[in-house]
């Protein structure tokens, strides 16, 4: 009954850098806004449902208000007529925010080269990750999400300052 309590060390304390901690927390709480305009939507549905399950990456809960979301997933063809709406949605999102171009249409206009199609959403808004494919396979979408997570985790987070 005289046993000395020994510390095992497991999870009693943890050392990390504050910005790594914030990055780690942020990369698993992506709230996507699906800006879905065309056939890529089918692939978006499959990647977010059971088989591929983007919930594993913390990117499960689509928010249909730009105010509540931080990842703009542009899924499908953007026409010139649609472009002002996309731009407005992007501008309404709060920082920090990221943009994913899902499929070749959003990336570069895809095979549409005519009066109607915008030749890539990066002509009007900055893009963080491009996913090629028409439509992309779910695996490439997951790869894109993981690359975005790396980018988020390694970014500097402006909320870290001398007061935080």
């Amino acid at each position: 009954m005289n046993q000395v309590h020994e510390k095992s060390g497991a999870f009693e304390y943890l050392t990390t850098r504050k910005d790594e901690l914030v990055g780690w927390a942020r990369k698993f709480s992506i709230f996507p806004y699906p800006f879905v305009t065309a056939c890529c939507a089918m692939e978006f549905m499959s990647v977010s449902s059971t088989m591929y399950d983007t919930d594993r990456f913390g990117a499960a809960l689509p928010r249909f208000s730009p105010r509540q979301s931080d990842l703009l997933m542009v899924v499908g063809t953007i026409t010139h007529k649609q472009a002002p709406i996309l731009k407005k949605v992007y501008e309404q999102m709060c920082e920090p925010k990221w943009v994913m171009a899902f499929g070749v249409c959003a990336t570069s206009g895809g095979f549409y080269r005519n009066y109607a199609a915008l030749q890539g959403i990066d002509k009007i808004i900055p893009v963080d990750v491009y996913i090629p494919g028409c439509p992309p396979r779910p695996e490439s979408v997951i790869d894109g999400i993981m690359q975005l997570q790396d980018k988020i985790a390694n970014a500097s987070h402006p909320i870290i300052n001398e007061k935080f």
Partner: peptide
């Protein structure tokens, strides 16, 4: 009128200014 044959195939008329 974009479906007239003399409308240039690649002529675009964007509504948003490009970055």
């Amino acid at each position: 009128h974009p479906l007239r044959k003399d409308y240039p195939k690649e002529r675009e008329q964007p509504l948003v200014r490009y970055r």
